[in-house]
Measured scan of single mutants.
Amino acid sequence: ALRETGVIEKLLTSYGFIQCSERQARLFFHCSQYNGNLQDLKVGDDVEFEVSSDRRTGKPIAVKLVKIK
Protein backbone atom coordinates (compact mmCIF):
# COMPACT_ATOMS: atom_id res chain seq x y z
CA ALA A 1 0.00 0.00 0.00
CA LEU A 2 1.08 3.56 -0.65
CA ARG A 3 2.47 5.37 2.38
CA GLU A 4 1.56 9.02 2.84
CA THR A 5 2.73 11.68 5.26
CA GLY A 6 0.94 14.29 7.28
CA VAL A 7 0.83 16.20 10.54
CA ILE A 8 -1.20 15.40 13.65
CA GLU A 9 -3.78 18.17 13.72
CA LYS A 10 -6.04 17.09 16.57
CA LEU A 11 -5.56 14.44 19.23
CA LEU A 12 -8.21 13.10 21.58
CA THR A 13 -8.26 10.15 23.96
CA SER A 14 -8.98 7.40 21.45
CA TYR A 15 -8.73 9.07 18.07
CA GLY A 16 -7.42 12.07 16.18
CA PHE A 17 -7.06 13.78 12.82
CA ILE A 18 -4.14 14.14 10.42
CA GLN A 19 -3.68 16.98 7.96
CA CYS A 20 -2.29 15.25 4.87
CA SER A 21 0.79 16.55 3.09
CA GLU A 22 -0.01 15.02 -0.30
CA ARG A 23 -3.70 15.85 -0.50
CA GLN A 24 -6.12 18.49 0.70
CA ALA A 25 -7.68 16.32 3.34
CA ARG A 26 -8.00 15.74 7.05
CA LEU A 27 -8.00 12.05 7.83
CA PHE A 28 -9.48 10.41 10.90
CA PHE A 29 -7.37 7.84 12.72
CA HIS A 30 -8.02 5.60 15.69
CA CYS A 31 -5.30 5.54 18.33
CA SER A 32 -5.08 1.73 18.11
CA GLN A 33 -3.54 2.29 14.65
CA TYR A 34 -0.48 4.01 16.14
CA ASN A 35 2.41 1.60 16.67
CA GLY A 36 4.16 3.50 19.46
CA ASN A 37 3.51 4.94 22.89
CA LEU A 38 0.55 7.30 22.66
CA GLN A 39 2.10 9.50 25.36
CA ASP A 40 4.78 10.37 22.79
CA LEU A 41 2.30 11.48 20.14
CA LYS A 42 1.32 15.14 20.08
CA VAL A 43 -0.25 17.76 17.84
CA GLY A 44 2.24 18.95 15.24
CA ASP A 45 4.08 15.63 14.98
CA ASP A 46 4.93 14.37 11.49
CA VAL A 47 3.55 10.92 10.81
CA GLU A 48 3.55 8.39 8.01
CA PHE A 49 0.52 6.21 7.38
CA GLU A 50 -1.50 4.17 4.92
CA VAL A 51 -4.89 5.24 3.67
CA SER A 52 -7.72 2.77 4.07
CA SER A 53 -11.47 3.22 4.04
CA ASP A 54 -13.88 3.07 6.93
CA ARG A 55 -15.91 -0.14 6.68
CA ARG A 56 -19.10 1.59 7.80
CA THR A 57 -18.95 4.92 5.97
CA GLY A 58 -16.55 4.24 3.10
CA LYS A 59 -14.67 7.42 3.98
CA PRO A 60 -10.86 7.43 3.80
CA ILE A 61 -9.09 6.94 7.13
CA ALA A 62 -5.44 6.73 8.17
CA VAL A 63 -4.10 3.38 9.39
CA LYS A 64 -0.73 1.95 10.47
CA LEU A 65 0.60 5.26 11.77
CA VAL A 66 4.32 5.69 12.39
CA LYS A 67 5.90 8.82 13.83
CA ILE A 68 8.63 10.28 11.60
CA LYS A 69 11.69 11.15 13.63
Rank of each mutant, 00 (worst) to 15 (best):
A62K: 01
S14G: 07
Q39I: 15
E4D: 07
P60V: 13
V7T: 14
E4Y: 05
V63W: 05
I61A: 12
G44D: 11
E4K: 09
L11Q: 04
S14Q: 07
D40R: 05
Q39G: 13
N37M: 12
G6D: 01
V7N: 10
L12E: 10
G36K: 08
F28Q: 07
G44R: 06
T5W: 02
Q39Y: 06
R55W: 09
G36Y: 09
K10P: 00
G6F: 00
E22K: 13
A25L: 12
E9P: 00
K10G: 05
G36Q: 08
V43Y: 12
L27C: 08
V43D: 06
L2P: 02
E50S: 09
R55K: 09
N37W: 07
S53C: 12
Q39A: 12
N37I: 15
K67L: 09
S53M: 09
K42A: 11
V51A: 14
A25W: 14
L27Q: 01
G6M: 01
L11K: 14
V43L: 13
K10F: 02
K64W: 02
Q19Y: 03
L38A: 12
R55F: 07
L27R: 02
G16M: 01
E48V: 06
G58T: 08
L12V: 10
L27V: 09
E4M: 10
V63E: 11
T5A: 13
D45F: 02
G44K: 05
K42D: 04
F49G: 00
G6W: 00
E4W: 04
S52E: 14
L38D: 13
F49C: 01
F29M: 02
G58V: 08
I68E: 02
K69L: 08
R56T: 09
I61Y: 08
V47F: 01
N35S: 09
K67Y: 02
F49L: 02
L65P: 02
I68V: 12
D40I: 04
R26M: 15
A25R: 08
K67S: 14
H30C: 05
F28H: 15
E50D: 08
H30D: 05
G16H: 00
L12Q: 06
K10C: 04
S14K: 05
D46M: 07
E50P: 00
R56G: 09
I18R: 00
L11H: 04
T13G: 03
S52A: 12
E9D: 08
T13V: 03
K67I: 07
I8G: 00
G16K: 00
S32A: 14
S52T: 13
I18P: 00
G44H: 13
I8E: 00
D54A: 11
T57I: 03
K10W: 03
V47M: 14
G44L: 04
V43I: 12
V63C: 15
L11A: 03
S53K: 08
E22Q: 07
L27M: 09
L65Y: 01
E48F: 04
C20M: 15
R55Y: 05
C20R: 15
D40H: 05
V51Q: 15
K67P: 05
K42P: 00
I68F: 14
F28P: 06
I8N: 01
K42C: 08
D40V: 03
G6S: 00
E50I: 08
K59H: 13
T57D: 03
S52C: 15
F49T: 00
L2T: 15
V66F: 08
C31L: 09
N35G: 03
S53F: 13
G6I: 00
S52N: 12
D46Y: 09
I68Q: 13
A62H: 01
Q33W: 15
Y15V: 09
E48R: 04
T57F: 07
V63N: 13
S32Q: 05
K59W: 11
T5G: 04
S14E: 04
C20I: 06
I61W: 14
F28E: 13
C20L: 09
I61P: 02
D45W: 01
I8V: 06
G6H: 01
D54K: 04
Q19L: 08
T13K: 12
R23F: 05
K10V: 08
P60G: 05
Y34C: 10
L38T: 14
R56D: 04
F29L: 01
T5M: 04
G36P: 07
R56I: 13
L2W: 02
R55I: 06
R26S: 15
R3V: 05
G36C: 03
V7E: 11
E4H: 06
Q39C: 06
V43F: 02
D46V: 05
Q33S: 05
S32L: 08
S53R: 09
L38E: 09
L41I: 05
H30M: 12
K67V: 09
R23S: 14
S52G: 11
R23E: 04
F29N: 00
K42G: 07
E50H: 05
V63A: 12
K69M: 11
D54N: 04
D46H: 14
V43T: 15
R3Q: 02
I18V: 08
R23D: 06
K64A: 11
V66P: 00
A25V: 10
D40Q: 10
Y34R: 07
S53G: 13
L2M: 15
L2F: 06
L12G: 12
A25N: 03
N37R: 14
K64Q: 15
D46R: 11
E22M: 04
F49Y: 15
N37E: 07
N37L: 14
S53W: 11
Q24F: 07
L38Y: 15
Y34H: 09
D54F: 07
L41M: 05
C20D: 07
C20H: 14
A25K: 15
V66W: 10
K69T: 05
E50F: 06
I8A: 01
V66Y: 14
K67T: 10
T57L: 10
V7D: 01
A62P: 02
I18A: 02
R56F: 08
Q19E: 09
F28G: 05
R26K: 15
S32I: 06
E48I: 05
Y15Q: 07
D45R: 01
V63P: 01
L27P: 02
V43H: 02
N37G: 08
Q24Y: 04
I8C: 03
V7F: 11
I68M: 03
L2K: 15
D45L: 07
C20Y: 13
R3G: 02
V51S: 06
V63M: 10
V47C: 11
H30L: 05
D46P: 10
E50K: 06
D54Y: 07
E4L: 11
A1V: 13
D54S: 13
A25S: 05
E9Q: 11
R26C: 13
G16C: 01
F29D: 00
Q19K: 01
D46I: 05
Q39R: 10
G58I: 13
K69S: 13
Q39N: 13
S21Q: 09
H30T: 12
Q33V: 11
R56M: 10
K42H: 15
G44V: 00
L11R: 07
L11F: 14
Q33R: 14
E48L: 03
Y34N: 09
N35C: 13
R23M: 08
I61F: 08
V47D: 01
V47R: 00
G16N: 00
